[in-house]
Write a protein that binds this DNA or RNA. Structure first.
Lengths: 350, 350
DNA sequence: CTGAAAGCGCTTACAG
DNA sequence: CTGAAAGCGCTTACAG
C-alpha cells in the first residue's frame, strides 16, 4: 500500500494525500479526516520514511557515534547519562537516535566496507563521543551535516567539554589538605595501547590536546606541586576500560602491596574505579577512609547511595548530552562549550 | 557530490560507479580502484543511504522499541544487556540500531503526530521490549516487516521469553527451606496504574498473559503454597519503576516497620530492588542475612561483586537480545523461544 | 482547495 | 565489462 495507491482508490491526487498527512492547512478538514480514515481502514500507515527522507533530505534521525564499544557504552553510567540527555532533546523535537560505534569488538569486515558510509549517511547530524581510534570513521561521515564532539576535540567542529583540569586540581587540593603518606593515581586510558598497570617513562601517552585523561592528570599534578609533592614520585596506573572487571585486576595489585608500600590516598579518574577500590578494600579489611582515602570522578548515582559515599567531582553528563543535541539540531549556536562541575564531599575522603 | 555527478566527471555511467561501490565483481579491478580513488579525491563518501534504502527497500537499520522511557532503559542493567546482545548481532551483520521509546516522558505532541509512523518506518525490522502502554505504537509499525517481542507477548508475533514462573518457584523454594517468620514480596509493576506501595484487593492487576511480573508472582505463590504458607497472607508491595530512587521510597517504609512486623524474608523481583534493600538495611543496622534474608532476580553484575552477594536468578539478557536480533534478521526461525535461567546462591540468602 | 509533473539519489535488470 | 533507462515512494512548487 503506497500513497499513490491510496490516492487512486480515493480518487484524489497524491499531493492531496501527502498534504493530509503533512500539511493539514492545505485541504479541508472533512477531506483530510476522510483520507486519514480510509488510510487506516486500508492499512496504510502513513508516508514511508525512506522515500520521504530522500525527497526532503531529512531523516529526523541523529546518530551518536561512540568511541567505545556499544557494549561498554550501554553499561557505563556516564555514557548512559549522556545518551539520556541527547534523547531527551531529540524526543522533544521529533527525532530519533541511531547508535554507531567506532570501536568494533571484532569485525573482520570485508575490505569493501571501507568505502561505504553505511547507514551513517542516513542521519541528519552527529554527536561524536570520546576519542575515536583513528579518524577514519569521522572522515566517512558526510562533511556538510552538523557534527558536535563531546569530551574531545575534532578539527573545525564545535565541542562540548567540562573543566577537567581545574576540577581535578580542586579535588586533589581537597584531598591533600590532610597530608598523605603515599599517593597513587588511578587513570583512565592515558596511553596509546591496550595496557593495564603502572605507567612508566617508556609508555607513549595519548595526545594531550585530545584526551580528557591528560587534562585530569595535569590537574592532579598541579595540586601535588602546590603541596610540595613531586608529581614524578607519584605512581600512575593505567586502566584501559572503565569496567568493574578491568578495574579489579589493577586495583587488586595495588591493594595487595605490603601495607608500607600501599598508598593511603588514591586519586581515581572515575567513580567506577573508586567504587571498585571500595569493594575490594572492604573485602580485605582495609578501612575507608581510615586506612585509605579515595576520590572519584563523575558523581554517578551508585557512588552516592552507598556508604561511604564517594568524594568526587560531579559532572552533569545529561546536560552535556542536551547541549550537544541542541547544537546538532541547530537550536543553539554551534560553538565550543565548557560546562562546569561541582565538588562533592563524601565520607571516602572527608 | 552525487553518484551521477561523479560518473559524469569520470566519463563512465552511473551503473559503473554504483557497481564500484557495491559489486566489485562487475567491473575490472583497475577501473574500480580508479573510481574509488577519484571518489575520495573529490569528496564523494559513497552512495547516499537514503536513496539506497528507497531503491533497495532495505535500510540496514533495526529499531528497538522500548516500553520504558529511554532514560530508564539506558540506565537499567538488564535493558542494557539486552541492547548489548542485539547490537552484537546487528554489528556482525552490518546493521545499526535505532532506539525508539513507547513511553514518552512528557510529549504533548501535536495531534498530527498521531498519523505518522515517523522514522520508525525506516527500519527493516523491530524488537519490542516490554509491555507497551497501549497498542497504538505497535499498530503504527509497518505490518509486513519482521517484529519480535521480548518479555511479553504480541499477537501473531514470535516472542523471546524466559521461564519466569519456574525460576521464581525455584528461588522461593530455596529461600523457604529455612522457614521465615514473616515473608514479603517486592514486585515490579504489577498493577495498571502508577503506584508505589502495598497492593490490596482493590488494585487492578495487569493482564496475566502479558506481563512477566504476574508469572513471577505465580511462581512465588506456588512455592509458598507448597510450604504451607497461605499466599494471601503474604504482603506484596508494588514498585512502579526499577530505579534506586523509586525502590527506596517503598523499601524505607518496610524497613522502618517495628521489628516484630518487619519481614525476615523478602522475595524481590529484581536485583535492583534487592540491592536497594541491602543498602538501606545496612544503613539501619539490619544485618543481611541474619536479620533479613533477601533474594533478587536478574543476576546483574552489581549484585555479584558486592558483599553479601545476592541470591538471585541469573537470566542471560544478552542472549535474549541476540536471539531476538537473529530472528529479526531472519537468521533463525521466527518462533516463540523460552530461554533458561540459573539459580545463583549468594550470601544474602544462603 | 486540488491536480499534473518533476525529481530527490540511487540500484538493477537488460541490452550491447 | 559497460551504458541507457526505469522506477523505488514520496514532497513540493506551480498552475488552475
Amino acid at each position: 500500500m503506497t500513497l499513490k495507491n491510496l490516492a487512486q482508490r480515493l480518487g484524489v491526487s497524491t499531493a492531496t494525500v501527502s498534504n493530509a498527512f503533512n500539511r493539514p492547512d492545505q485541504l479541508s478538514r472533512a477531506l483530510r479526516e476522510h483520507i486519514l480514515e480510509e488510510a487506516r481502514r486500508l492499512g496504510y500507515r502513513g508516508p514511508d520514511a525512506r522515500a520521504r527522507s530522500l525527497r526532503t533530505g531529512q531523516s529526523r534521525i541523529v546518530a551518536v557515534v561512540l568511541a567505545e564499544t556499544l557494549t561498554y557504552s550501554l553499561n557505563d553510567a556516564v555514557s548512559s547519562e549522556l545518551l539520556t540527555g541527547i534523547t531527551e532533546v531529540l524526543d522533544a523535537h521529533g527525532h530519533t537516535l541511531l547508535l554507531l560505534s567506532g570501536r568494533q569488538p571484532e569485525s573482520p569486515r570485508h575490505a569493501d566496507a571501507l568505502c561505504h558510509p553505511g547507514s551513517a549517511s542516513m542521519a541528519d547530524g552527529f554527536v561524536v563521543y570520546g576519542l575515536m581510534p583513528g579518524d577514519r570513521l569521522i572522515n566517512e561521515l558526510p562533511a556538510q551535516r552538523p557534527l558536535v564532539g563531546v569530551d574531545f576535540h575534532i578539527d573545525a567542529r564545535p565541542t562540548v567539554h567540562i573543566d577537567n583540569e581545574p576540577a581535578c586540581h580542586a579535588i586533589a587540593c581537597h584531598a591533600l589538605k590532610k597530608r598523605p603518606r603515599r599517593v597513587g593515581i588511578l587513570s583512565l586510558r592515558l596511553i596509546d595501547e591496550s595496557y593495564n598497570g603502572p605507567v612508566s617513562a617508556e609508555h607513549r601517552c595519548l595526545d594531550a590536546h585530545r584526551t580528557i585523561t591528560r587534562s585530569r592528570l595535569d590537574g592532579f599534578h598541579r595540586a601535588l606541586d602546590e603541596h610540595d609533592i613531586d608529581p614524578t614520585s607519584v605512581p600512575v596506573w593505567n586502566i584501559d576500560e572503565n569496567t568493574h572487571a578491568v578495574c579489579a585486576t589493577v586495583i587488586e595489585e595495588i591493594l595487595d602491596l605490603p601495607a608500607e608500600q600501599r598508598p593511603d590516598l588514591l586519586l581515581c579518574m572515575s567513580d567506577r574505579i573508586a567504587l571498585t577500590v571500595l569493594t575490594l578494600a572492604e573485602q580485605r579489611g582495609i578501612r575507608v577512609p581510615e586506612d585509605l582515602r579515595l576520590t572519584g570522578f563523575d558523581g554517578i548515582e551508585e557512588g552516592q547511595y552507598r556508604a561511604p559515599r564517594l568524594t568526587t567531582v560531579r559532572q552533569d553528563s545529561i546536560e552535556k548530552g542536551r547541549v550537544a543535541a541542541r547544537m546538532v539540531l541547530g537550536l543553539e549556536p554551534a560553538e565550543n562549550r565548557l560546562l562546569g562541575t561541582r565538588l562533592l564531599i563524601g565520607e571516602s575522603c572527608p
